[in-house]
């Protein structure tokens, strides 16, 4: 009988409780146990960022995080970003700026972009295109060539701090 651990955590604002194997990754838990298939398994070793989710306000590669480690934490996935009112501002910017082609990497890319906008390490200064590109270094996209991705994030930078 293989070991299962009960964990409790907040998932997109809702308390969640379930049992997971100690070797299960957070990504597998989200996809297979919670039907949250927005985050993708594209490499499984933290090299592409397609599985990016927010844990306690910080993005991580959910393919590298064990599900047991979610216990007591706060998770936000791409499914928790949009509201009833519509797309979140970053999502809308990605749509409007044509950043999305096949879209497979986009849930991860958008979560990382959201994090970047909230955690501009140099808070006194507006992010430049180079800052944005650096912040998205861990997210591989094979369709867009990144230009429109950076366009979209740069537009949100302006929109969220217009001065």
């Amino acid at each position: 009988m293989s070991l299962e651990i009960e964990i409790k955590f907040s998932l997109n604002g809702r308390q969640t409780r379930l049992k997971v194997s100690p070797t299960m990754t957070t990504l597998a838990m989200l996809r297979e146990k919670l039907d949250l298939t927005g985050g993708k398994l594209a490499c499984g070793e933290g090299e592409c960022g397609a599985c990016t989710v927010l844990v306690d306000g910080h993005t991580i590669n959910s393919c590298l995080m064990f599900a047991v480690d979610c216990d007591g934490r706060e998770l936000q996935t791409i499914e928790g970003l949009a509201t009833d009112a519509g797309l979140e501002i970053v999502q809308q910017a990605f749509v409007d700026h044509g950043a999305i082609q096949c879209g497979y990497c986009m849930p991860g890319m958008i979560m990382q972009a959201r994090y970047l906008l909230d955690h501009n390490p140099d808070k006194g200064r507006k992010m430049t295109r180079d800052d944005i590109a650096r912040g998205l270094e861990g997210n591989v996209c094979r369709c867009s060539g990144y230009t429109k991705v950076v366009d979209a994030v740069a537009a949100v930078v302006l929109e969220e701090s217009p001065s």
């Binding site: 991580i60 590669n61 990382q112 270094e137 997210n139």
Partner: peptide, 9 residues
């Protein structure tokens, strides 16, 4: 060091 996501973890 690696990427933002890996640095965070």
């Amino acid at each position: 060091f690696a990427s933002s996501q890996i640095r965070n973890a």
